[in-house]
């Protein structure tokens, strides 16, 4: 009889999560163009929106680019959700999910591995976007602690989107249906304060945009960076930092358990 060589010295879910994070980092190394495209796409949007529409946008106390960069920082977090859905469905389609499930690795480790890799992806995305901001003349004005708080809120939003993305990916199953998420990212982005003030939108649209979790983070980040905005007077805009803290917590509380349950249900 053969005896397995696998006598695990330390079989911990943290180590498994690290192994699975490493797998995604290897993907980036294997396909540098694909990750570069993901990172540079938001830069393209900044250049297009900033210079194409920027002239027509009158932002009190600043330029449209000063308004746009915080919005794009929030959008970059949202684009991560789209990449996550694509990655999760691709793994399912290629049978990699099944193969990992046939290994002695827990669902917690699988989700954590995805989460860590996504956090690294988010950090790379923020770095690129902030560098772009500096290149086009955007600056934070309220000091380092405040700026760090802004970055914290952005990552906190991405943390929530990680679980939404994993859940949707497991739910949708195929990369073809994941395209729906790619399309839906745009209305979510436009119906927020990322690009323009909700105050300029027709009533019902403005209401959606005001309460959009993305708006909460974009507005809070503007406030913490000391960047200009259209001086919203809604309760949501005045309490944006609170909302940018609460919204991701709510999303995480809902979607983290849902994502875990979906993963466990793959065996049903």
């Amino acid at each position: 009889m053969t005896t397995p060589t696998a006598v695990p010295a330390s079989a911990s879910w943290l180590r498994d999560a690290a192994t699975l994070t490493h797998r995604i980092l290897l993907h980036w190394r294997q396909r540098p163009f694909s990750i570069a495209l993901t990172l540079l796409f938001p830069v393209l949007i900044v250049l297009m929106f900033g210079y194409l529409f920027g002239g027509a946008m009158a932002v009190p106390d600043g330029t449209y680019l000063d308004y746009l960069i915080p919005g794009m920082l929030a959008m970059t977090m949202l684009f991560g959700l789209e990449s996550m859905v694509l990655a999760v469905t691709a793994d399912a389609a290629k049978g990699v999910t099944e193969r990992i499930r046939a290994m002695p690795v827990s669902g917690v480790a699988v989700l954590t591995g995805r989460g860590w890799a996504d956090l690294l992806n988010a950090l790379a995305g923020l770095t690129v976007m902030i560098a772009t901001g500096y290149a086009v003349g955007w600056r934070p004005h309220d000091g380092l602690p405040s700026a760090l708080a802004a970055l914290g809120l952005l990552l906190w939003l991405r943390f929530a989107f990680t679980w939404v993305g994993i859940y949707l990916g497991l739910l949708l199953k195929t990369p073809e249906s994941a395209v729906a998420v790619q399309v839906l990212v745009w209305p979510v982005g436009f119906l927020s304060s990322a690009f323009v003030s909700p105050g300029t939108m027709p009533g019902w649209m403005g209401a959606i945009a005001t309460w959009n979790p993305l708006s909460a983070t974009a507005t809070a980040v503007r406030e913490l960076f000391g960047n200009p905005s259209w001086n919203e007077t809604t309760w949501a805009a005045e309490h944006s930092v609170l909302l940018a803290t609460v919204w991701p917590a709510v999303l995480t509380a809902v979607f983290l358990p849902l994502a875990y349950r979906r993963y466990r249900l793959l065996g049903r």
């Binding site: 060589t5 696998a6 695990p8 180590r15 699975l20 049978g95 990699v96």
Partner: peptide, 28 residues
């Protein structure tokens, strides 16, 4: 397990696949 449809990570190399699943099986 060898499934009915090939299930290896296409983006990785053959060696990376083997090492990945070795690590997930808790080999050093």
């Amino acid at each position: 397990l060898v499934g009915q449809h090939a299930c290896v990570d296409e983006i990785l190399t053959g060696r990376q696949n083997l090492q990945l699943f070795g690590r997930l099986g808790h080999l050093t």
